[in-house]
Design a protein around this nucleic acid. Structure first.
Ligand SMILES: [Mn+2]
Ligand SMILES: [Mn+2]
Ligand SMILES: [Zn+2]
Ligand SMILES: [Zn+2]
Lengths: 149, 149
DNA sequence: TAATCAGTTAGAATGAGTCTAATCCGCAAG
DNA sequence: CTTGCGGATTAGACTCATTCTAACTGATTA
């Protein structure tokens, strides 16, 4: 269920952490593995429970710490919808999020560069933005199953 | 500072509440007045303190209740940025939000229909969305003062 | 008048997230 | 080897926005 990291992914982790002067630890590797194994935008709690299956001593505090670290070095994005618990997403391509009203599930929606550009173009002069978050809320057809890997 | 509602605005309030079987109360009128008087996306607490200046007995619980009611009948939008306190916006035209990293202030960004349409067009078939939230985060030139009324 | 009912109110409860202080552990110096 | 250091981990306390609860108010209706 929770395979190991591929060499590529371990290298990605290593490099991103290294660039901000931090190390790969077993806990960080476990948490990162969980994020890549099932790309369903888990909450901290979900990450915690999944990671524990493979590292029973892992603490919730550490999961918070790891995720914060990953966000800090750009390995992972936070995803918020209204005031629900924060979710985490390892998809680094520009994309929007769609939250299914019925199931609560969050889906990635690819964001073509020209749409992103037209969006940025609505900013009046003087406004300079690093980050744009786009989130849809509505109903999605079943389409089943999980968007792993 | 906190003028009264114009006839038009009072009618708007009355009608929207009426449509969902609710009444105009002094508390609701005070809270709505506060929202219209200074359109700076106040938090619940800010609304609370402003409204108290004009209605000292008003409780925080009631401010929460009024705002929830307004959201429910479409008089007001909630605005969330990451996990900060929810803010409230009486601007019902389609618009995005820009949060200034430096000041924390939230600005309305007009959203032209064609941009909105191009955004909706990125949804794959089977995804049907009521609501799109767009929020920018970055730096805005001073541009001073408040966007009241 | 008495019953009803939406709205208001204070305060308790909730829960995601943050903070703190103790412990752990890999590594480098002695 | 031993020791000391510093980052990482850990449990549990704490925060604070929001939600919940139960009592109260005041207008309207029977
Ligand atoms: Mn890569
Ligand atoms: Mn109007
Ligand atoms: Zn995503
Ligand atoms: Zn707004």
């Amino acid at each position: 269920m929770i395979q190991n990291l591929t060499d590529h992914d371990r290298e990605h982790l290593q490099e991103a952490l290294g660039k901000s002067g931090q190390k790969v630890t077993p806990q960080r590797e476990a948490v990162f593995t969980v994020l890549l194994a099932q790309r369903d935008h888990p909450t901290v709690d979900e990450v915690f429970h999944r990671a524990r299956e493979v590292m029973p001593g892992l603490s919730l505090a550490t999961v918070y710490n790891c995720l914060e670290t990953f966000v800090g070095c750009g390995l992972v994005r936070q995803v918020n919808h209204e005031r629900e618990s924060t979710r985490y997403c390892p998809n680094l391509t520009p994309h929007a999020h769609f939250r299914d009203k019925a199931t609560g599930r969050v889906h990635d929606i690819e964001l073509p560069p020209e749409v992103l550009k037209s969006l940025r173009s609505i900013l009046p002069p003087g406004f300079d933005s690093d980050v744009v978050e786009i989130s849809f809320h509505g109903r999605a057809q079943a389409k089943d199953s999980d968007p792993s890997n």
